[in-house]
Simulated assay, not measured.
Amino acid sequence: MGGVDAYRGSAWLDWWTNSSLRFSTEVTVVISTSEAGWEATGRLVEDDDLQGFEILRDLDPLFSLRFADDSTIPVTVFSLDNNGAGFTLREYRDEPEDD
């Protein structure tokens, strides 16, 4: 995040099945720096996207977090809250994380 301590704003979570089929939903996110790199929480903007979001997350929690400038970060979606619209994100890594 290039020296920025926090970002709060809009972004999109994109889930791709192939080059022609994509699910995209607008989210609000709060990203802050941490010792491990960064931490993020978010919430869906449109409740109508919740059912599709939950189904796709259960199939594969890997999404692309896309910003207004079209930059992206591969992320894993964790910890849906009770109504499913709130979540935490971690940057996706090919190697398993030590917990």
Rank of each mutant, 00 (worst) to 15 (best):
G2A: 15
G3M: 10
V4E: 10
D5I: 07
D5S: 14
A6Y: 04
A6D: 06
Y7V: 03
R8A: 15
G9F: 03
G9K: 08
S10N: 07
A11H: 03
A11G: 10
A11R: 03
W12Q: 13
L13P: 02
D14H: 08
D14L: 12
D14A: 14
W15N: 12
W16N: 12
W16T: 08
W16G: 12
T17M: 09
N18K: 13
S20V: 07
S20M: 11
S20E: 10
L21V: 06
L21Y: 04
F23G: 13
S24M: 06
T25R: 15
T25P: 11
E26G: 10
V27N: 13
V27P: 08
T28E: 14
V29C: 02
V30I: 05
I31C: 02
S32H: 05
S32W: 02
T33C: 10
T33P: 00
S34I: 02
E35L: 11
A36K: 14
G37A: 10
W38M: 09
W38V: 04
E39L: 12
E39W: 01
A40S: 14
A40Q: 08
T41P: 01
T41W: 01
V45D: 04
V45M: 08
D47W: 04
D47N: 09
D47V: 06
D47M: 11
D48T: 05
Q51M: 11
G52L: 11
G52R: 15
G52N: 14
E54T: 12
I55E: 14
I55L: 15
L56F: 05
L56G: 10
L56R: 15
L59M: 12
D60M: 11
P61C: 10
F63I: 01
S64L: 13
R66I: 07
D69Y: 02
D69C: 02
D70Y: 03
D70Q: 09
D70E: 06
S71E: 05
S71G: 04
T72E: 15
T72P: 01
T72G: 08
T72C: 15
I73A: 01
I73C: 04
V75G: 00
S79M: 09
L80A: 04
D81V: 05
D81K: 11
N82M: 10
N83E: 02
N83A: 13
G86E: 05
F87C: 00
L89D: 00
R90K: 13
E91M: 10
E91V: 04
R93S: 13
D94T: 05
D94G: 15
E95W: 02
E95R: 12
P96N: 00
